[in-house]
Structure formats: C-alpha cells, structure tokens
Simulated assay, not measured.
Amino acid sequence: MNFISTAALAMAMSTDAFAAAIGKGTALQKPRWSEALRTGAIFGVIEAITPLAGWALGLAAVNTVKAWDHWIAFALLGALGLHMVIAGLRADPAESEAAKPTRHSFARLALTGFATSIDAMAVGVGLAFIDVNIVPVAAAIGFATFVMVTLGVMLGRVMGAVVGKRAEIIGGVVLFGVGAAILYEHLAAV
C-alpha cells in the first residue's frame, strides 16, 4: 500500500470513533485537553491493535469476523447509547452542569473504542490476503484515530455547552446512530 491509500484507510477507520468521541465529549462537564488526549490515546491504541489482531486471525477467521463484526459493533454501541439516553432522561432538568462527570471510566472508553474498531479488525484480516506490511498501516490507523477522537471530544465540549443539560441524550443517540450506521453499511453491501 502506498502512502495515500494508507492515509485514506486510516481516516476511514477513524470516522466511527470520531462520531463516538463527540458523544463522549457532550456527556462530560467541560472536558479538558488532558481528558481529550486520554480518550484519544485509549481509542487510538485499541484501533491500532485491532487490525493487528485481524491480521493474526488471517485466513482461518475471515468469514467469522466479517459475518459478525457489524452485529457486535451495533450491539455494543447501541447498548452504550441506550444507557446514555436513559441516564439523560432520568436526569433532573434542574441539575447543574456540575452533575456531569469530568472524565469517563477507562472501561467505558475501552468498550466504546473496541466497538468502533471491530471494522478495523476485519480490514486487518483482508490485508493479510494481499501481503501488506500491517505494522505501518495499523500505526497510521491508530494515529488518525488518536487525532480524530481528541478533536471529537473537544467538539463535544462545544456541542454540550450549546445543547445544555440534555447533551447526554444527544451523545447516546449519536452512539446508537454510529452503531446503526455500521450495521446498515454492512447489511446494504450484502
């Protein structure tokens, strides 16, 4: 793969994580750059590891990964999104901005990062068939995701300030929408 195709692939793999990061940013109380960088690093590392894992699965698991990746992503993102919507609906409208958390748990970020990176695992499996050096491709995907997620969290901060106390509902709808879009793309391609 040349530089341009690697960069295009990296950007394509990071778009789901970017949308999820906006939702994560809206659910936080004025996220700082340190939290955005932390979130970006968690997503970026996971997004870099999954194509390596897909590469390792190789020929033996290609049909299994491709057959289920969209359903797994939809279930994980849908559940996280639904949880955020329910939490937002339960929130008292009189609650202040201070009631929002200042950071997400590592487990929640890792789960969301994994859900948005399952397609990168399938890409890794596919790249194993065409004899591509997976390490620079995985590094590019991880770096692009790191940048996009960091920016997404900060964009979510702005959106959270604009939409007010119901930002968590919007963030949950965004996560659910990302999962539904992944599912639709894979089902429509069949």
Rank of each mutant, 00 (worst) to 15 (best):
E47N: 13
E47A: 13
F143R: 04
N133W: 03
H186K: 13
G126C: 06
G172N: 05
K100Y: 10
N2E: 13
D131M: 01
L127Y: 03
W68Q: 13
A139C: 07
I86L: 14
I72F: 10
T39D: 03
R166Y: 10
G160E: 08
R108F: 10
H104D: 11
T145I: 04
A60D: 13
P31G: 00
S96M: 02
V162T: 14
G25R: 02
Y184H: 11
L57Q: 12
K165H: 12
V125G: 02
G58Y: 09
T6E: 02
G179D: 12
A61I: 13
F176K: 01
G156W: 05
R108C: 11
M84C: 02
G78E: 04
L76D: 02
H83V: 13
G179T: 14
A60I: 02
T26L: 15
A21V: 12
K24W: 11
L77N: 04
R90D: 07
S96V: 04
W33T: 15
G113S: 11
T145N: 09
A99Y: 07
A167T: 06
D16V: 02
V135E: 08
G126Y: 07
L175H: 06
D131N: 09
A122V: 10
A20W: 03
A167E: 11
A180E: 15
M13D: 07
T150K: 00
A41H: 07
H186G: 05
G156Q: 07
V173T: 04
P101C: 04
M121H: 10
L52T: 04
A36S: 08
I118M: 15
G164F: 10
T50P: 00
I72K: 04
A188G: 10
G171V: 15
R38W: 12
A73M: 01
M11R: 11
I46K: 06
I118G: 11
H186P: 06
K30R: 15
A122H: 00
I134W: 08
A167I: 04
V173S: 01
K66D: 13
A7G: 02
V147M: 06
V135L: 09
V62E: 12
F114D: 14
T150R: 01
F146K: 07
M1G: 01
L9S: 06
A75Q: 09
A122Y: 04
T39Y: 07
R103P: 02
D131Y: 10
G160L: 06
W71Y: 15
S117Q: 12
E97H: 03
R108S: 15
K66T: 08
A60T: 15
F176L: 14
H70L: 03
A120L: 03
A20Y: 07
V163F: 09
I86D: 09
A60E: 10
S34A: 15
L89A: 13
S96K: 03
N63P: 10
A36R: 08
